[in-house]
Design a protein around this nucleic acid. Sequence first.
DNA 1: GGCTCCAACTGGTAGGACCAGTTGCGTTTT
DNA 2: AAAACGCAACTGGTCCTACCAGTTGGAGCC
Lengths: 224, 224
Amino acid sequence: MDTNHAAETRAYDLVLAYIKGEIAAGELKLGDKLPSERTLMTRLSLSRNSVREALRQLENMGFVRSVHGQGSFLVNEAGRGFAELFSMLLLLHQTDRQEFWELRRCLETSAFAAAAAAPDSACLAEMEQAVEQMEQAGTLEQLEQAEEAFHRALLACSGNRLFRLIQNALAAPGQTYRRETLTTLDESVRAPLCATHRRILESLRTGRTTQGLAALEEHFRLIR
Amino acid sequence: MDTNHAAETRAYDLVLAYIKGEIAAGELKLGDKLPSERTLMTRLSLSRNSVREALRQLENMGFVRSVHGQGSFLVNEAGRGFAELFSMLLLLHQTDRQEFWELRRCLETSAFAAAAAAPDSACLAEMEQAVEQMEQAGTLEQLEQAEEAFHRALLACSGNRLFRLIQNALAAPGQTYRRETLTTLDESVRAPLCATHRRILESLRTGRTTQGLAALEEHFRLIR
DNA sequence: GGCTCCAACTGGTAGGACCAGTTGCGTTTT
DNA sequence: AAAACGCAACTGGTCCTACCAGTTGGAGCC
């Protein structure tokens, strides 16, 4: 194995270090406006190019949002750039849809368990709304959106922000897969699909965890 | 809520699209050398700045490795840039160690189940070696490395590349947490810790899944 | 007071210049 | 002829300047 990974240091590392320092010092918090590129340039004795490459990296990670004419802001949209990442992974055959579904199943099972242990009424309400929208969905697109909303609420219910982060990261290919699955779905499967979602929700309300986990399993069998 | 997220298009998107096109067309595959920045510049009618910003993004995602004097290469080091991401998440209090452990537990539980269904002898051998190193570890550092190797092998055993990707992403904070935990660990806990790892391995060999899951749970109770 | 408009910000892009590693080929040396 | 050297032509890394294009806020006008 080569062990010289960390040897290289780039100019824009200074910018990253500076931003992180400001955050650690409490000078910078979420929503704040970063110093302008030209300010950072002079302050850190760097070219604007280097500053911009650092900001691109932060923007790519979802921590910075640069708006033309306004400035750059510290935000929390972590996972935004992951859409690109996953499309590349798929393109390079470094993953496939089976692994994708397996990860989703893994996350949602854990999320369900966490949610069942301490259900959040707001999230339950969201899930209720999503299930109703699924049941009443006229178009496929509505069904799609409702289904996604349901799972988003379920993940949110877990309270784990990392789970949601990964879910967001999976959102882009997820939409593709969801559409593929739903369009090829036999109409006869649609009713059980809705029923499964409702059972998951109800089991969270009644605390019947094992029943809910079974419903989750069935859900992934149906949709995979 | 504002809904104009996707309106903006940047110059470097052209580069990303071009690279992806080349990959899709089979012109470019892992390990290949990308066209030089100056070539891309003229070929796509962009400034070198824009080309570089695109390459930085790809490099940040771990798909490109630029080497001074040699060129840029298409690689698969996805997750390399995630170390930065997680340190930022922690810095901004967008996650914490509890969520971190919960994610690890979630992944490893699923990975164990997958591994139990179709155990891979090579990975089992790696795990065996890791357990032995744990049992014979003299220094804390050795224990640390052996423990990490064990879990790396377990995740690899699942066969799911996304799992390994996320594990790599978690590696940086993982090392910090692992060290924190192990250094504060009572010496009396060390033996059971090794025993737990061995039990996980043995259960994979004997196919006693429920026993293995219990051992995994105990592991996370011990180490958290 | 409310309006318009312009000046002074902001980021986005372009192109040139130079530094600094790497590579390979031609020349020189042995 | 084989080995060593060295230069030229790549490569990415950085800096600079200039300009375009949105946004903002205040000066001045209605």
